[in-house]
């Protein structure tokens, strides 16, 4: 199995038996919700759709896997989503096969998808990879596999001697404690790859995520051995050193 990173997504291509292009948290329709919260912008749905289509056309995957939160409004579906989601899916279908692991923002997504395009929300295996959105406890069948999940929108701050110089979407690769599975079916290590959000407005600092974890997956991460990768796959450092309180004094 080989993994390739596309910083322009952010997205990644997992090549095993099949070539799977993975994206997470597209949040189509986010603008109508931002408006409710006081930020008034034109919809960027068309830009998001074409960004994803470019990736698909360039990388020609067998499957496009969307790790949940494809839509944004909960509950219900906004007018913006009715306008933008059908064309997103129909354009994608012309080039590849769609698979969606529904997320907490996805109630109502069934209307836009064919039944076979929808994967179980508690997680399932796809070409030997565990895939789920990440707001629920993973299905026991995922134990012992590499799990890909969205939901956490990881962003890392890289600091240098003077102060924070860069904030960038990132991946977190970590071992998961086995307690997360009710009945672990294997003794093999389970690993998690947290995938950054495709939506350009979304981002949540990993220092916050892991200092006060808010999901079953983030609570089960073994921080000591976890690592952080930047959007283009560059090794960004150990998670524990990136979420430390104090800047190291350079003497």
């Amino acid at each position: 199995m080989e993994i390739e990173y596309f910083a322009a997504g952010p997205a990644l291509m997992v090549t095993g038996e099949q070539r799977i292009l993975v994206v997470a948290d597209i949040h189509m329709g986010i603008e109508s919700d931002l408006r409710i919260h006081g930020v008034h912008l034109q919809s960027r749905g068309a830009e998001r759709t074409s960004r994803l289509l470019e990736l698909v056309k360039d990388s020609t995957p067998d499957i496009i896997l969307m790790l949940g939160d494809v839509k944004h409004r909960v509950p219900g579906t906004s007018w913006q989503e009715f306008r933008e989601l059908p064309s997103l899916f129909s354009e994608l279908r012309q080039h590849t096969t769609i698979r969606v692991t529904p997320g907490n923002h996805d109630p109502g997504i069934e209307e836009f998808l064919k039944p076979e395009e929808l994967l179980p929300k508690e997680g399932s295996l796809l070409d030997n990879l565990g895939v789920l959105h990440g707001h629920t406890r993973p299905d026991p069948s995922l134990a012992g596999h590499l799990i890909l999940a969205g939901h956490h929108h990881p962003v890392v701050s890289l600091a240098d001697e003077v102060g924070i110089a860069l904030r960038s979407p990132c991946y977190v690769l970590a071992e998961l404690r086995s307690e997360i599975f009710d009945t672990p079916e294997t003794d093999e290590t389970t690993r998690l790859l947290m995938v950054p959000a495709f939506n350009e407005f979304s981002g949540y600092g990993i220092e916050k995520t892991f200092r006060s974890p808010f999901s079953p997956l983030s609570r089960a991460v073994v921080i000591e051995t976890a690592e952080c990768l930047l959007a283009d796959g560059t090794y960004g450092g150990d998670l524990s050193s990136l979420i430390r309180y104090e800047r190291q004094d350079c003497t």
């Binding site: 919260h37 006081g38 930020v39 904030r167 350009e200 981002g203």
Partner: peptide
């Protein structure tokens, strides 16, 4: 573009 009382920290500011 942003309401006076908006909670714009919901967005990732760098973006």
């Amino acid at each position: 573009a942003i309401d006076a009382d908006a909670d714009y920290e919901r967005l990732s500011m760098h973006r």
